[in-house]
Structure formats: structure tokens, C-alpha cells
Simulated assay, not measured.
Amino acid sequence: MKRDVVFPPGRQALYEQNRYSPAVRANGLLFVSGQVGSREDGTPETDLDAQVRRAFDNLNAILEAAGCTFADVQDVTLFIVNPEAVFQRIWGLVLAEYWGQGPYPAVTAVGVTWLYGFDFEIKVVAKLPGQAD
């Protein structure tokens, strides 16, 4: 079975270089690979806040390419280096901006020791538009 892959504009070479799909459509859902705060060339933003915002911008580009918005996101997994020190800062930075008022998606935050030079990663599952609830 061939995967129905979604590529955001302008970053396909980066995904091909790293050999993974940014998102796959299946059974009415969009499964988005973990997004980090990488610039167009794949290097990380150096400031944590900028890295988080860039990760959300990268995620938004994939959602848009699939015809989705943050309102379609049902499940979120956050991977955070040093979560005890930065979780509230990270979540406070983006929650209202991207999800507004509740109800919010399901969220799991995982503390990790290594993210390939990044401090934050987000992966989501979204409902594709036009799918029944």
C-alpha cells in the first residue's frame, strides 16, 4: 500500500534528506511527524522561544498543506529537554495563540535527554476536513 504523504511547500528536500515523511493521511486522520524548530536549511533556532515558535510554524505549514488547522488537532505529543524547567514557559507561549480557548486537544509531554540538537519537538494527530465526528 502506498502512503498518502503530505509535504509542506519548500521543505521536501529536507525531509527526503532525512528519509521520513512529514505527514501521512490514513483512515480520515493526519499523522504528523515530530516537528522541531528548524530553519529552512535544517539548523536549529538557538533561542528556546524562537525554536518553539518555529516548530509550531513548521507544524502549521504541514497542517495547511493537508487542508487542516490547529482546530482539527486531536492529540499532541510534546518532547522536551529539561521539561521541569521549561514546560510551563513553552506551553504558555503557544497555547492561547494556536488553540485559543478550550476545549484543548489531548496532550502528552515527555521529558527526553536528546533531540538531535533541539530542545523541543511536537507531533500531532489531526482529523482531516470532511470526516465525520
Rank of each mutant, 00 (worst) to 15 (best):
K2M: 09
R3S: 13
V6A: 09
F7N: 10
F7Q: 08
A13Q: 12
E16Y: 12
E16K: 15
Y20M: 07
Y20K: 09
A23W: 04
R25H: 10
A26D: 14
N27V: 06
L30T: 02
S33G: 09
G34A: 13
G34D: 07
Q35G: 09
S38G: 14
D41C: 14
T43L: 10
T46D: 13
D47G: 06
L48I: 06
V52M: 12
R53T: 12
R53E: 14
A55H: 05
D57S: 10
L59C: 06
L63A: 01
A66P: 04
T69G: 14
A71I: 12
V73G: 06
F79A: 05
I80R: 03
V81A: 06
V81I: 12
N82A: 07
E84H: 03
A85S: 03
V86K: 00
V86S: 00
I90E: 05
I90R: 02
W91G: 08
V94K: 01
A96H: 10
W99L: 15
G102W: 04
P105E: 00
P105N: 02
T108P: 01
T108S: 11
T108V: 11
A109M: 05
V110C: 06
T113F: 01
F118T: 14
E121L: 04
K123D: 11
V125W: 12
L128W: 11
G130V: 06
